[in-house]
Simulated scan of single mutants.
Amino acid sequence: MYAKSNPSDARANNRRLLFQLLFPGRQLSRADLCKETGLSRATATDVTGEMIDDGLLRELGSGPRDGRGKPGILLAIDTNALRLVCVDLSRPYVMTGAVMDLRARIVERRERVLDDGDRVDLDDVLSLVGQMVQLAGPGLAGIGVAVPGVISGSGTVISSAHLGWSDVELRDLLEEEFSLPSCVNNDANATLLADRFLGHGSSSCLLVQIARGVGASVLLNDEFVAGDDHAAGEIGHVVIDSDGPICACGKRGCLETYVSAVALRDRIRKDPHHRTETLTEAGTRLGNALAMPTSLLNLRDIVVYGPPDVAGETLLDACRETVNALSRNDYQSGGIRVRRCELGDDAALRGQAISVLHEIVGRR
């Protein structure tokens, strides 16, 4: 049975829809918003007025005249009234916190070096969030944390091997500690969200994240694929060669043993003269691994996020050639594009800000 929607659901969806049309930097009149959404003028006026009162939108003044009528007042996202706090726990040896505006731009940032490499103490996370809350000031609207691992829909970290966490109810802890709407996401999902709205992404896309391990995230028609156990995208320990090297998980030939940044840098360090061959092989193996899911889901956009010394054109070219050779069909128009995410080290932070925005725009 489907749950019945109610007027508050429709209002929240309308707010999110209008905010998304203006995010990150568009300027549209209420008439423009009506044309793009099909909402009535009365509904658009009511909802945008409410969002202006909440500090989400602002009026800019008259736009260009369209026809013989009076020019409309342009609306844009208000970048002055409210702030967000986001923390990224996905990078080795460092936690990064940021105060951000409603266009997911960093206003203030702080970093804390991790004494134990990857291991993160929960109290240290809460301390960093508290520091950023103080920097944000009275206009703080919400908090977000990007975590490597399996995250439930309720913001519980089910498992994060890199952080040494299991069953940590992080969202509840944040909301109890700071009394603000909070959002906890997988770091690959956050990065894909940033690529979708701030980069060159499409509404249906597969992101591969090459870091300490190998993870993935899938967006279908602007909806994330979570899976029954919230573990969709955990592809690093899928065996691609049963006779391959021993993986940290105990199996042989996991994708991670061939494609992770750690594995590739180690191989290149040991044999620097064959760097191109090493990266080409990694790209070919990645393309082999991705051919099935891209065909299964009819995806034409793959984005790779990772350090440029390994996730560069050599690896991407080999991946692109392989995945197209293995998955091309006569009914497909054009090929599958394989491209690099170009948002830098702050991609997860900025994507997490977008997640928080989705929550607060619908709540306020």
Rank of each mutant, 00 (worst) to 15 (best):
M1L: 13
Y2K: 14
Y2P: 07
N6F: 05
N6R: 15
P7L: 00
A10T: 09
L17H: 04
F23C: 03
F23S: 04
F23E: 04
R26T: 00
R26K: 13
L28A: 01
A31H: 01
L33P: 11
L33C: 04
K35H: 03
E36G: 02
S40H: 03
R41I: 12
T43G: 00
A44T: 15
T45I: 00
D46C: 13
T48Y: 01
D66H: 10
R68V: 12
R68F: 14
I77P: 09
L89P: 01
L89E: 04
V94K: 00
M95L: 00
T96G: 05
M100Q: 02
R103E: 05
A104V: 09
I106K: 08
V113E: 11
G117R: 12
D118Y: 06
D118S: 12
D118E: 07
R119Q: 11
D123M: 01
D124N: 09
V125P: 03
S127W: 06
I151H: 06
G153V: 00
S154K: 14
V157H: 07
V157R: 12
S159E: 09
S160R: 11
G164N: 05
S166R: 15
S166T: 10
D167W: 03
R171K: 08
L173V: 07
L173D: 01
E175F: 05
E176A: 14
E177M: 09
S182V: 08
C183V: 13
V184R: 10
N186C: 11
N189S: 11
L193A: 04
A194D: 04
D195I: 12
R196T: 05
H200K: 15
S203G: 03
I210Q: 14
A211D: 14
A211P: 08
G213V: 06
G215N: 10
F224C: 06
G227Q: 06
D228W: 13
A231E: 05
G236W: 08
I240V: 15
D243K: 14
I246F: 05
C247T: 11
E256N: 10
T257L: 02
T257F: 10
Y258F: 13
A263S: 13
H274W: 01
E277G: 15
L279Y: 02
A282D: 11
T284E: 12
L286Y: 03
N288L: 15
L290V: 10
L290E: 14
A291R: 14
T294L: 10
L296P: 00
N298W: 07
V303G: 04
V304Q: 11
V304W: 07
P307D: 12
D309Y: 08
D309R: 07
A311L: 04
G312F: 13
L316Y: 08
D317Y: 10
D317K: 10
C319E: 04
T322E: 05
L326Q: 05
L326K: 05
N329P: 01
R337C: 00
C341T: 10
L343G: 02
D345E: 13
D345T: 12
D346H: 13
L357Y: 08
I360V: 14
R363D: 14
R364K: 11
